[in-house]
């Protein structure tokens, strides 16, 4: 049964790539609005694959996965595109479009939704100011530091006011001071109502924030859980 307002419903989900490698085994979990989850585990444990399932970048091999109440196995490509507008994603290597300016990168999610240019600009400038990049709107990503690029990626991920924010090692390419700033940014987004799932290796930050931890080991969610995901 799916609860009203449930963002992610995952029941006995497994994922096997074409090469036959089984990366996720029997995963069951639920995410609710306004929740924050750390996703931890050693390299190759399946964190990125789990996030990939959550941003609808792949269909599971077995089990039931529903995102915003829609079963991903039955989902059309167009439905997936429209649902992804409710999901923001931040990667370790930023995935910005290099020949577009910072402002154009941040505006892109609104552009694909065909929002008017003036509204796009206003919101993008506001967000860039929020992440402290108001002086870099016309710069190309190539000319920014790792921390600045990650903040651009965060601004792009949240400009569409996503209900679910996924971050895959977002602090992997920045120094500790910037990492702390970014974690506080994610915490701020969570407090504004977004469900945040943050994959990280950083034990320090996992222990610093009072949010539940999902620990993946060899493709399984193990009992090594700091705290069970709680309903808001």
């Amino acid at each position: 049964m799916i609860d009203q307002g449930e963002i992610v419903f995952m029941e006995r989900v497994s994922l096997r790539y074409r090469e036959g490698v089984s990366v996720l085994k029997n995963i069951s979990l639920r995410f609710f609005p306004r929740s924050f989850h750390f996703l931890t585990g050693s390299s190759g444990a399946g964190k990125s694959s789990l996030l990939r399932l959550l941003y609808l970048g792949l269909r599971p091999t077995a089990g039931t996965l529903k995102v915003f109440g829609t079963d991903i196995q039955q989902m059309s490509v167009k439905q997936a595109s429209l649902l992804r507008r409710r999901v923001g994603v931040v990667f370790q290597d930023f995935n910005l479009i290099e020949h577009l300016s910072v402002l154009e990168n941040v505006m892109l999610p609104l552009k694909v939704r065909n929002e008017p240019p003036s509204a796009r600009q206003e919101q993008a400038r506001e967000l860039l100011s929020w992440v402290g990049l108001e002086d870099h709107v016309d710069a190309l990503p190539l000319h920014l530091s790792g921390g600045e690029r990650q903040r651009v990626a965060i601004a792009r991920a949240v400009i569409g006011r996503p209900d679910l924010l996924l971050a895959d090692e977002p602090t992997g390419n920045v120094d500790d001071k910037m990492a702390q700033k970014l974690f506080h940014l994610f915490d701020g987004l969570h407090k504004m109502g977004t469900c945040v799932v943050l994959a990280t290796h950083s034990r320090h930050f996992v222990d610093m924030f009072p949010y539940p931890e999902l620990y993946l080991e060899d493709g399984r969610l193990t009992p090594h859980i700091k705290q069970q995901p709680e309903r808001p």
Partner: peptide, 16 residues
């Protein structure tokens, strides 16, 4: 392909 993946990730439809 990489840019197409980014566009799809931020919600671009095939027609876009």
């Amino acid at each position: 392909q990489h840019i197409i993946n980014i566009l799809q990730l931020i919600g671009a439809t095939d027609t876009y």
